[in-house]
Write a protein that binds this DNA or RNA. Sequence first.
DNA 1: ACGGCTC
Length: 230
Amino acid sequence: MECGPVGNDVELLCKTLQFEHKLFYFDLKENPRGRYLKISEKTSATRSTIIVPVDGIVWFINLVDYYINTDEHEAFSKELKIDSKVFYFDVGENKRGRFLKVSEASVSRNRSTIIIPAGSSGEEGWIAFRKILLEINEEASRLYIVSNQQSVEPSEHHPRLSDDVGAGFISGHVSQPASSSYLNIDRLIELPLHDEMGRLGLSKVIRVDQKRFFFDLGNNNRGHFLRISE
DNA sequence: ACGGCTC
């Protein structure tokens, strides 16, 4: 396991993905302002980094999904607004092949960009990238519960929680135990009013051009699901 | 071993 240099921020977990001649570093970090995922693309000559707030990880997963599942010439550019940042997703193609470009624009920094190759046989680069994000999202949700409960032994005292709660869907200022707020989702998810869910912090919205896409987490006895509505 | 990159 290779972790980047550690400053004041705490490293929670590190992963790497090597694809073609690029090396991607994924570092989940924490500081007093919150948690974020640092994604760096390293080649022999260059290194570029984007910083994704934890709440953005699930939307990254979803957007990578979109590009994996969308036909080559029907994939639109997308933008994702999180906090004060905007991430731009674009597909491109050149003689080396297809790639997904993810750019971060924030007020204070210069724009930074990572480029994820699709790969030569299908989209295995994007699929591998998504897999890492899924792993991080799952592990981050466990870490979230651990720190939120401030319990030294969460696996003994809260054995069910870690599998039931996804990161990013529980707002940071929930004062109730995560389990009780979570149990309400089944009823709330049936409500057709998106603004009602938005008010309760249970829905996320991505605006693309004139459209708005709503992402809502739910579960039932069949398992977990993410509902996307336009 | 590449190499892509308006916001």
